[in-house]
């Protein structure tokens, strides 16, 4: 059976300015299950944002398809909410109006009061209450702005939530708080999330699965690493978990070394470029018969 969100043989090429083509990524094939929190990790320039824009419908792939819930993704839609790195709030609207803007687009037949109540509820879920919601975005801190952006996206309850490095521009402390809020709101809504990040610890804290991309050009989604740490997770407790450093080391190794080694390898003929599944679990008994996952069980010690 196909996964909820299926990315099939996605290829993106741009003219390289010298008459040729620059292949950003080729034949990328992977899936995301409903309710899953998937994070994609990779170096700058590997095409993460391009994938994100294609999923959002803001860009067209050169070839390949994105199928969500049985339907091909064509153009942007309310079913795919986006949280941009630079917040993308409308600066002439108040915080509340920025959220009602989205809610009104999603529910055109709701009355004003209902729209406003809904927006207020979601702003409260990210910790924005009281007078703050009547301020303009320019009067808010970066962290608060990103909260508004998250509230706007979640208030629309899209089938797929796309987060493009949402915490990239925030300081570490603020980032931590908003990560917790994100986990909280995600936990309440069973939202399918696809997120880009540079931050390994953030990825482990948030994700069910991490997709690892090799360096570009001709980047590939090389591995899919399952995060075998039970939820609910807490940043101070997960570091105690036996799998934490094993997974972390694996990711660091990949980003530090193997992302370069694996870069630029063409797809073998007739094969899709789907990522290799990696499951690292030190709590399992070695002879677990239930594990049907094929191949490559990285055992780092």
């Amino acid at each position: 059976m196909k996964p909820y969100l299926s990315i099939e043989k996605l290829t993106q090429r741009f003219p390289d300015g010298a008459g040729g083509d620059l292949t950003v990524f080729e034949d990328a094939t992977f899936g995301v299950e409903k309710g899953e929190f998937v994070v994609i990790l990779g170096h700058s320039g590997c095409g993460k944002s391009t994938i994100m824009n294609i999923l959002a419908g803001l860009a067209e792939p050169t070839s390949g398809a994105v199928i969500m819930d049985g339907q091909e993704v064509k153009g942007p839609s309310l079913e795919r909410g986006v949280v941009f790195q630079n917040y993308s709030l409308l600066p002439w609207l108040s915080t509340l109006k920025n959220v009602t803007f989205g809610v009104a687009a999603r529910h055109p037949n709701w009355n004003r009061q209902k729209i406003e109540d809904h927006a207020v509820k979601f702003l409260a879920m990210v910790g924005l209450e009281g007078d703050v919601i009547h301020r303009k975005p320019s009067q808010l801190s970066g962290g608060m702005r990103q909260r508004v952006s998250i509230a706007r996206a979640f208030a629309n309850h899209p089938k797929l939530m796309l987060l493009d490095e949402p915490f990239g521009a925030l300081d570490a402390l603020t980032r931590g708080t908003i990560q917790d809020e994100l986990l909280n709101i995600w936990g309440q809504m069973e939202q399918t999330v696809f997120m880009i990040t540079h931050d390994i610890d953030e990825a482990i804290l948030l994700a069910d699965r991490i997709l690892l991309m090799t360096n570009g050009p001709q980047a590939r989604v090389a591995e899919s690493v399952e995060i075998t740490i039970p939820r609910p997770r807490n940043r101070t407790e997960i570091v105690e978990h036996p799998n934490y450093y094993a997974i972390r080391n694996h990711l660091v190794q990949f980003l530090g070394k193997r992302s370069k080694e694996l870069a630029g390898q063409p797809t073998p003929a007739g094969q899709t470029n789907s990522p290799v599944s990696v499951r690292i679990d030190k709590t399992e008994t070695p002879d677990d018969p239930e594990d049907k996952r094929p191949a490559l069980r990285a055992v780092n010690s």
Binding site: L58, S88, A105
Partner: peptide, 12 residues
Amino acid sequence: EDWVNVARTHEL
């Protein structure tokens, strides 16, 4: 472009 993208993702 970001603001136009906000409009696009909200299907305006």
